[in-house]
Nucleic acid binder design. Structure first.
Lengths: 218, 218
DNA sequence: ACTTATTTTTAGGCAAAACTAAATATTTTT
DNA sequence: AAAAATATTTAGTTTTGCCTAAAAATAAGT
């Protein structure tokens, strides 16, 4: 058995492990809005349980079992978000908090049935890939940030880096939603803001926004 | 704010308050599978929060706010059970435990949208009435236990008293499901078991089973 | 009415998961 | 390479929600 709290830590380590190394104590503390000392405590416990590789002063990384758990939580989170948006008509900026609770509901049968009920979706409402029953993520699309796209190259919006309600609401208002085709018309030297073409019109967006929009480049 | 544990206690007090009085410490301990001393602790806290009327040695009853919370949990529990059975094709004996978890998810918006999504059902898969958005329960059907029905009176199965998986599976096997019309053919003096007519056939059931089946008598 | 049985409360303890403050490691800067 | 800054751990505390064991109150039996 495991607690919701343990699941939160495993998910955080997964989120902060960018291919390369694991996650540092401070990064985890920041991500989870907790104090570093609390992180140290829990990392010891997770290490004892065999879910995490932890060495003093060297951060933590998931081992096989821990990664499976983390992926199962991510899978649940994204399936529930999809349910909330596709079936209950929530908007994409309203579902994160609720899914944070729903992701801890324990029942494999429930998750798999929900998956089928939703038609085995590959992506959630923010464009993030949903791990399948075997916790595999298959996403062959080449992705980059809008801030890195070359001028006049047509790309498709496929996700957001940070799915905070503020960003999502902004994008919604500008109709920069998933699936839209866009291209960068001009990059302003002064502040690196972009002029983009979308929906047959042109509009300006800040570098900050562009750094948080994921686009497909193939 | 309130914890899942507090919600469990309020729900238990609600369940054990049969119109008349409130619930005793021991009854709550038994219902919640906890020790009496734990109950006393929590009753003090719930009383401080203004949700429960508690007097030493005299048990506990819900006040206005506590009853509203209890009903909101009951509403969520029954709506989620309905979702699991009607949308995810769970069987009626498989949903209780999952709904025990789901009932603690916090979001009024979620509950109300779920209610609409399900078509504002009046009863859950076990025949229990679902409180509406204002926590009102409207159920004008006259109900009694099958064990108390007079011979040859036709009645309709509308619920179960105890919704344990064992009972539900038994009823399912005998096709004694909600909505079925039945009548008592004979009552055996020896053990008070019943011979009932259902689905054009006759079958025997124990007194124990009959005491747990609710039927509509009007 | 008084003794026994049952119920309930009190008192003290424990584990989980967070915290603060202080101590120790590591990293960065000069 | 030493000093300063930053990161991490240790040690001790708090709160929540449960527990056991013992004490006290209430209810039941003769």
């Amino acid at each position: 058995m495991r607690t919701s709290s343990e699941e939160d830590y495993l998910k955080a380590i997964y989120a902060l492990s960018n291919n390369n190394e694991g996650a540092s104590t401070n990064a985890l503390a920041n991500h989870l809005s907790m104090k570093a000392s609390s992180i140290t405590d829990m990392l010891k416990k997770l290490s004892d349980k065999g879910w995490v590789h932890y060495e003093k002063y060297k951060g933590a990384s998931l081992n096989i079992d821990g990664k499976a758990i983390a992926l199962s939580i991510v899978r649940k989170h994204r399936l529930w978000e999809t349910f909330l948006v596709n079936k209950l008509n929530f908007k994409w900026d309203e579902v994160h908090e609720i899914a944070e609770q729903l992701e801890h509901i324990k029942s494999n049968e429930l998750v798999d049935r929900l998956d089928d009920f939703l038609g085995n979706p590959k992506f959630d409402p923010h464009g993030d890939p949903i791990p399948n029953k075997d916790y595999e993520i298959t996403d062959s699309r080449k992705r980059s940030y809008l801030s890195e796209v070359k001028i006049n190259r047509e790309v498709i919006i496929i996700g957001v880096k940070d799915s905070s309600a503020q960003l999502l609401q902004y994008l919604e208002k500008e109709n920069m939603i998933l699936g839209k085709h866009i291209s960068v018309v001009e990059i302003h030297d002064f502040d690196k803001s972009l002029r983009i073409a979308i929906n047959g019109k042109e509009l300006n967006i800040s570098e900050r926004v562009a750094q948080n929009v994921l686009v497909q480049t193939n």
